[in-house]
Design a protein around this nucleic acid. Structure first.
Length: 756
DNA sequence: ATCAAGGCTTTTTTT
DNA sequence: AAGCCTTGAT
């Protein structure tokens, strides 16, 4: 039982409390995972059957790692029997098992966000609604938050308050769209992400025998990251725990960062009400970070009003101060951080794995990607467009989906004419209209064209028939071939492989696409080999829908710098952390400036970012950055000001080179004078005179579209268009403060701003 | 039915 | 800057 010796008093207390309701408030870096792991191991060693344990984690990866660690204590075969995973993946398995009760096919499809939006777009069009007022993403947002609050389409249509809100927002027909969307998903045998929660709740609500079964099965329940659960998750857990009331929730209100997808801190407060006899454990000692980092983080989070009192402290060394770097542009930010990483790697014995660059929005990754590539530093970007969201992968997966669930409309729409087989838009529209009018799936129409009164000409009929025959031939092999064999067959006979092979010599992107398909196929091969049971393509799809980048650990062993959003860094730690883009309107996000609660969530997000760092943390911001192709100037984030100045060190890198001194070297501390140095350095100007004679082959000057230029009167601008040559050359220039101007180049005396 | 070109919009975070 | 959509030519 020596593993218990690794725990401090409060950790041990939480581990040894097996029965009843308990809440563990775990500060950042306080050994939360260790407590969860050891607690489960302890339970099993004390005679609790792993089959009776349900552990809900935040990522699949966390679940895998925990299973492994528990396996080391109690043996892997025991650990394997614990039901552990994300809400979504655990529930999707339960739903597969009970699909028929809810009127879904066992092989129901899981629509991802892209599928949902595409369907909504169609519906909005079919209903003849203004697609400016009804944007698929905002409509999906409405529907999603309704589902997360267990409001069905019918309830939505009857809820005065919601209808009023929609009316106010000039989108009174969302309830109609919701209803249609629900019908269409059902007809397609598809659940979206939110349905996985919503339908699980329906299952447990309407089928007492199912509820009783799972209540009996899951006698002990653990929920990680409880602060990020939404109402649906809360209620499901509550129902499951109702008979035994052995429930342990772990969380940290200071790290609640998912309210945009319905997470509700209220759930933590409700816990007291639901389980009045609950025991509370607080883990306050931080084992992860230096004193500087812990205290800087504390000074930040103390600015929030909404919080549960706790004092996070550490015994670790003081460590280095937090470095603050200012750069001119977003590109320079990339170069300087890249240079810091390069230098750090040269001078110390750190590994690239020890380094993370964290940002608020995915699109910021680009500058760092480019810079790191130039420095020849290996990196991996998490999030953004994940492997499974790539077009070529989704295309092939759509074939798989249609094979296992022919009702899947989104899959069908995707591949009906891909690779190109002469089935055009008109044909597709007619099919969809017929399907809608008769309230059946498109596939149903497709296999009975006559029955639905579609009079296509012979050419079209033949092509459709050919398509149907192909899909049917795949379906016929669903059970005779394993997942890999069938996947390979489909990749070949669908023509996808051929198509991509032919495009391969077009460029590196095309090569990559082909390689991605190969990678997917070998992934399926691995999936088949990983088990003694025969794995079918349906089995594979079941697994794949809920995988994310964070879950794939193929590159785990490789040595690379990590690039990710702060959101996806939750739960991780790195010795060296760079938090970049510390600018107003970016972090905190512009979208979050409307209310205190939103701003506080951004602040918690910053708290999460800071507390990822073990030894060193560097903040950076750019004086201006390109946003939608325009150079916008920006101010340093208020969050920098909010950190107690004692913990900061301001570093002004030398201009020009984009490289700077080593990471650990402190160069004369600049006092924190009047907030931050907000004056912008002026970019270097290159006078046109210097460029005389450097005209290009057309006899034109060196102006180019996209160039940033300086005008005497209008200031900085960007060339958006060039017309004519020589003396007649005209330039269209966008000036942020003066709008678009058409200028005659000869007179305008535009000075080119040097790219950095 | 297909393809290229040009215009228009994009405005966070994720299962 | 990039992706999506419409348009117009073939």
């Amino acid at each position: 039982m020596n593993y218990l010796d690794e725990l401090n008093a409060s950790q041990l207390a939480a581990v040894e409390q097996i029965d009843g309701a308990l809440m563990v408030i775990a500060g950042a870096g306080s050994g939360k995972t260790r407590v969860l792991t050891y607690r489960i191991a302890f339970m099993i060693e004390n005679g609790i059957d792993p089959f009776n344990i349900l552990a809900l984690t935040f990522t699949n990866k966390a679940a895998r790692e925990m299973t492994e660690r528990i396996g080391k204590i109690v043996g892997p075969s025991e650990a394997k029997n614990i039901t552990m995973g994300t809400f979504h993946s655990v529930f999707s398995r339960i739903l597969r098992f009970n699909a028929d009760r809810l009127g879904y096919p066992t092989n129901f499809t899981i629509y991802d966000t892209q599928d949902s939006k595409s369907l909504l777009k169609d519906i909005i069009k079919e209903l003849n609604l203004d697609d400016k007022a009804y944007k698929p993403s905002s409509v999906l947002g409405r529907i999603s938050s309704a589902k997360n609050n267990l409001i069905s389409a019918d309830m939505y249509a009857q809820n005065e308050e919601i209808l009023f809100e929609d009316k106010q927002a000039k989108r009174p027909l969302i309830s109609t769209i919701y209803k249609t969307y629900e019908n269409r998903c059902r007809k397609a045998g598809a659940m979206d992400f939110d349905d996985l929660l919503f339908q699980t709740h329906v299952l447990l609500r309407d089928f007492p025998e199912v509820l009783a079964y799972y209540q009996h099965k899951f006698q002990f329940i653990l929920v990680d990251e409880y602060q990020d659960t939404n109402y649906a998750q809360y209620l499901i857990v509550k129902k499951l725990a109702a008979t035994n009331e052995n429930i342990c929730v772990v969380g940290d209100d200071a790290q609640s960062i998912y309210s945009f997808r319905g997470a509700n801190i209220q759930n933590i407060l409700n816990f007291k009400v639901d389980y009045p006899d609950f025991k509370l454990f607080k883990l306050e000692q931080n084992y992860r970070s230096t004193k500087n980092i812990v205290e800087a983080a504390n000074s930040i989070i103390s600015k929030n009003k909404d919080q549960i009192k706790k004092t996070v402290w550490t015994d670790n060394n003081d460590g280095a101060k937090i470095t603050v770097i200012r750069t001119l542009t977003d590109n320079e930010e990339g170069k300087i951080i890249g240079g810091k990483i390069f230098d750090a790697k040269q001078s110390t014995s750190i590994s690239f794995n020890d380094i993370a660059v964290l940002y608020r929005t995915n699109r910021q990754s680009r500058a760092f990607e480019e810079a790191l590539r130039k420095f020849n530093i290996p990196y991996k970007i998490y999030g953004g467009i994940s492997f499974y969201q790539r077009k070529e992968i989704k295309d092939l997966l759509a074939y798989f989906r249609l094979t296992t669930n022919p009702s899947d409309e989104e899959a069908l729409k995707r591949i009906l004419n891909y690779p190109r087989r002469g089935i055009g838009k008109t044909t597709e529209e007619n099919l969809i209209i017929a399907a809608n009018n008769n309230s059946v799936s498109i596939w149903e129409v497709l296999i009975n064209l006559d029955q639905y009164g579609l009079n296509f000409n012979k050419g079209v009929r033949d092509k459709l028939y050919e398509f149907v025959t192909m899909i049917r031939s795949f379906q016929a092999q669903l059970h005779s071939l394993n997942a890999f064999q069938l996947a390979e067959t489909i990749a070949k006979s669908s023509g996808i492989l051929k198509e991509l092979k032919e495009e391969k010599d077009k460029g590196p992107e095309e090569v990559e696409r082909f390689q991605n398909i190969e990678e997917l196929l070998s992934g399926i091969q691995e999936f088949v080999n990983s088990s003694e049971e025969v794995k079918t393509l349906s089995d594979f799809l079941l697994d794949v829908a809920l995988l994310t980048d964070a879950d794939e650990d193929k590159n785990e062993g490789r040595n690379h710098v990590t690039l990710m959003t702060i959101h996806s860094s939750k739960g991780l730690e790195f010795p060296y952390v760079f938090i970049v883009g510390m600018e107003e309107n970016l972090f905190p996000s512009q979208m979050a400036l409307n209310s205190r609660t939103e701003l506080e969530e951004e602040r918690r997000l910053f708290y999460v970012a800071l507390t990822r760092a073990k030894e060193s943390c560097t903040l950076s911001y750019a004086a201006s950055r390109f946003i939608w192709g325009q150079l916008i100037s920006s101010e340093p984030s208020r969050f920098i000001d909010e950190i107690d100045g004692r913990f900061l060190h301001f570093d002004s890198p030398p201009r020009g080179q984009g490289r700077s001194l080593g990471m650990g070297i402190n160069r004369g501390e600049r006092p924190f004078s009047g907030g931050l140095n907000r004056t912008m350095g002026s970019p270097k100007l290159t006078s046109m005179n210097d460029l005389k004679g450097s005209s290009n082959a057309n006899g034109n000057s060196s102006y180019m579209v996209g160039q940033n230029v300086q005008h005497e009167r209008f200031g900085k601008g960007k060339i958006t268009k060039l017309e004519g040559i020589g003396n007649d050359q005209k330039a269209t220039v966008f000036f942020p403060h003066h709008g678009i101007k058409n200028l005659i180049v000869r007179f305008a005396n535009l000075q080119i701003l040097e790219e950095d």
